[in-house]
Design a protein around this nucleic acid. Sequence first.
DNA 1: CTACTTCCTCAACTTAAGTTGAGGTCAAGT
DNA 2: ACTTGACCTCAACTTAAGTTGAGGAAGTAG
Lengths: 157, 157
Amino acid sequence: MKRRGGLTVGEVAERSGIAVSAVHFYERKGLIASVRNDANHRRYSPTVLRKIAIFQVAQRAGIPLREIANAMNFLPPEEKVTVKHWEKLSTQWTEDLDDRIARLRRLRDGMAGCIGCGCLSMDTCKLVNPDDKIGANGPGPRYLEEDAPEVGVFIGT
Amino acid sequence: MKRRGGLTVGEVAERSGIAVSAVHFYERKGLIASVRNDANHRRYSPTVLRKIAIFQVAQRAGIPLREIANAMNFLPPEEKVTVKHWEKLSTQWTEDLDDRIARLRRLRDGMAGCIGCGCLSMDTCKLVNPDDKIGANGPGPRYLEEDAPEVGVFIGT
DNA sequence: CTACTTCCTCAACTTAAGTTGAGGTCAAGT
DNA sequence: ACTTGACCTCAACTTAAGTTGAGGAAGTAG
């Protein structure tokens, strides 16, 4: 099983620290590509290692695979990928992370000030029901979900 | 269908903004409880509204239902729940959120400084492979997952 | 030549947090 | 009497991100 023409799945799996089945899976999903040798075995370019590394980092950041795949589709075919491209991804995902962080921070502040205060009653609590008509807007107290109109409001007491 | 003895599922669903099927689901999972009337219909105490509100907030914070259920098990039976109990939950989950936020922040800083720098190559990048032996430790570059031994290391270039 | 290991495909299973649908009961309104 | 609407149970479906297993081929070591 000499690696004439690229890395085997086993090698990719071991060097990137994921399971062989995961490598197969990523390929099925179109996130990476391989060529086949005469025995119908996959051979990978070393760049898949970088890609997989990026998948891991992005996933840890909470980016779903679908979006990762989407981003991968904007990359030029194979080795024409430049540092610029990774920079763009990085910027995009960093912004995404900033959003997530901000959202969690709002929640944390609301939670610290509000659940403990005893007011959490659907009718009066700003954290849960900021404007007394959330039920009419569809399901769920999705208040802190998207940028709320008034961020400083849910003091709660 | 007069509400003799508590809220109906429909009322709970409407007032808490979730689907009837979700109310059923929470009950199956033991997160809330009901009594049955003579027609075998569920009747809920108004406190379920508060509970469901808390589920929503906690889930938004990324707490899985299993943990929420677990926390609910530590609450006294029914209306013997005091503000202290909610405070404790709040404190616990706030800490949890602090952790999540810190983790995301580390990731963001690593991502901003590292993916763009062009070094992301599994062999040399600290973000991806901080100590050149992560493959031997099991699957995945789980570096930023738990508190990493050296947080300031992944400058990357 | 035989055994071992890696590889192949395809289908089914997993967890979370519900949703959807089929089939049936019960009380109210007309 | 009949239809509507809310309720009941139970089973199956959904998405994400894979894992596990069955059944088979191919390359390698002794």
